[in-house]
Nucleic acid binder design. Structure first.
Lengths: 140, 140
DNA sequence: CTACCTCCTCCAGCGGCTAGAGGAGCAGGG
DNA sequence: CCCTGCTCCTCTAGCCGCTGGAGGAGGTAG
């Protein structure tokens, strides 16, 4: 049996603040963990993985609902992939767009850091991220 | 002289909703545009670029303050790069971490879409994004 | 037994939007 | 020239995703 930690430990392990963990439980993003006799939450390794996943996904700009879908996908082994396929594909497309635009931004920001003693007269950061040739969105 | 558009046109051109554009102006993320005689906002090409930039940056998970910094960087040609260097480097590191984790996630999600008629029994999406070996953060 | 730390619940507030009310500007057709 | 209808204006209230504090109970160490 693996050791379980209280909410403070889970917070340190995941980098998510204590009230936020409780909030995730409240909105059903995280299953209600077991409790001690004294009513304290106990998190096992699975819970911690899930918390780390949520943290990184949020940092990458996925919204709670998307994370919920991804977690469902990963959390139901018996579910046929066919059902999950469209969800996954949707997210794949979104991930690709994110990577493409981050790479373009990276290029420009790095260029800025290279010109140590010059001015940023020719910075094109806005143009780079403002360009939407890689966009798949309908709305613009 | 280039044509300017009203807020509705700016919204369609940038993919940002009208109230959000007004909100960005209110918090000083977007400069107050010129107005018509009838008090309507008029946006030129520069404003639209800025709006597109903000939209993409927000989608990529940058917070408003980071965007403000990046815009300042790109918007002051006379400013020596030395001043801006640290800001740029900080963001560069963040961008790199985002790209690394997005790539890992991409890999896993794609693997999920490949197994058409199988189950997702061996999905490792959570582990992939839960892993924090690329993290530079102090807090965990 | 006391001190102190972590945990509990409840609730209020903040950042970043988003939507609606109520009213004025403006463009096109009759 | 006026009416219809669309877009715009400001103001205010609400939603999502947290974040922090009050007030109190559990648990552990000296």
């Amino acid at each position: 049996m693996q050791r379980a930690v209280a909410i403070g430990g889970a917070s340190r392990a995941s980098g998510i603040k204590i009230p936020t963990i409780r909030y995730y439980e409240q909105i059903g993003l995280l299953p209600s963990p077991s409790r001690t006799e004294g009513n304290r939450r106990l998190y096992d390794e699975d819970d911690l993985s899930r918390l780390r996943f949520i943290r990184h996904a949020r940092e990458l700009g996925f919204e709670v609902d998307a994370i919920r879908q991804l977690l469902d996908l990963a959390g139901h082994p018996s579910r046929p992939c066919r059902d999950a396929d469209e969800i996954a594909r949707t997210h794949l497309a979104e991930i690709d767009r994110k990577i493409a635009r981050l790479s373009a931004l990276r290029e420009e920001v790095e260029r800025m850091t290279r010109c140590r003693n010059e001015t940023v007269a020719d910075c094109r950061v806005i143009e780079v991220l403002g360009d939407h040739c890689e966009c798949i969105h309908d709305q613009h």
